[in-house]
């Protein structure tokens, strides 16, 4: 707005001068490109600079390049790919079972009174017990192998998916129920065209919590009761004082978390494209 060129045409000036009181926009504004990467990149830069300047104890926090070199070694030695595959498999099975269980239970309890009576109280009881507290019992039941780990992850995942989906299903707007009656929708169509689409935003909230939960469960399980996988690798490294290996493990966990969360966000944006929210 500081046009001070001598050639500026005089005619347009009054128009430029009109000062309209603009309402301040309360939406946070346009997204910066790759906005989500700015923070992590800055953190990495600080870490690298501090390491290069010798301000960090390399035994406690090794330099980024050390971590990368270690990752390269572990990868070519073949241990890292195996550990990653083991961990991903655990998380994927647990997540898939938890997802299916959460959705099926939420549908059964959100769409029928009998289902609600049977399921809702039980799930809430389950929720009241911290899932990680169930570990000893599940080891007794299922042994120390993969089954118990998958079961624990499935429980961590299904609870938030169930709770959010059920709340969304039973919180259906009564005005839309009325509309469905007026339009003469069958019960099946009512569920398919109104109840389920209306519950999708709630389901996605649960889904994102479930994804986070599956990684959290994985980390805890692998660090206390595992003989393979990323957590086991980090646990071993702790015993031998290899902080660079621990950081490699954390890095992989971080990438997992970021990728899975981005995938869920992407699907959510596709499926809920009718929504006009602040983030659109």
């Amino acid at each position: 707005m500081t046009a001070t060129t001598t050639t500026a045409p005089v005619v347009t000036e009054p128009r430029e001068r009109v000062r309209r009181p603009r309402r301040r926009s309360l939406s946070p504004g346009r997204r910066l490109p790759a906005a989500r990467l700015v923070g992590p990149a800055l953190l990495l830069a600080v870490w690298a600079a501090a390491s290069a300047a010798g301000r960090l104890d390399p035994g406690a926090i090794p330099a980024p390049w050390t971590v990368l070199r270690t990752a390269g070694h572990l990868w070519t030695a073949g241990t890292l790919p195996t550990d990653i595959a083991t961990s991903v498999e655990r998380a994927a099975y647990g997540f898939a079972i938890g997802l299916v269980a959460g959705v099926v239970l939420a549908l059964a309890s959100g769409l029928s009174r009998v289902g609600e009576a049977l399921i809702d109280g039980t799930v809430n009881l389950n929720r009241a017990i911290p899932t990680l507290g169930l570990i000893p019992l599940f080891i007794l039941w299922l042994g120390i192998g993969e089954a118990f780990k998958i079961a624990i992850i499935a429980i961590v995942v299904y609870v938030p998916i169930y709770l959010n989906t059920h709340a969304a299903l039973s919180g259906i707007d009564s005005r839309f129920v009325e509309l469905a009656e007026v339009q003469g929708l069958s019960r099946l169509r009512f569920v398919r065209q109104i109840v389920i689409p209306g519950a999708l935003p709630g389901f996605f909230v649960g889904l994102r919590l479930g994804v986070t939960g599956s990684w959290l469960g994985l980390v805890v399980l692998e660090q206390i009761n595992a003989t393979s996988g990323l957590g086991y690798m980090m646990f071993q490294a702790q015993n031998y004082g290899q902080s660079d290996v621990i950081l490699v493990g954390l890095l992989v966990y971080g990438v997992f978390g970021l990728v899975s969360d981005s995938a869920v966000r992407l699907i959510e944006r596709r499926v809920l494209s009718w929504r006009r929210t602040l983030s659109s």
Binding site: R175, Q183, G184, L185, Q193, P197, W274, R275
Partner: peptide, 20 residues
């Protein structure tokens, strides 16, 4: 016809008209 239009936000206009 209600006081609010009561269109389902997740269906396009034509699909709303065709509801049921």
């Amino acid at each position: 016809v209600f006081q609010d239009s009561r269109l389902l936000p997740w269906r396009r206009v034509l699909d709303n008209v065709l509801l049921g």
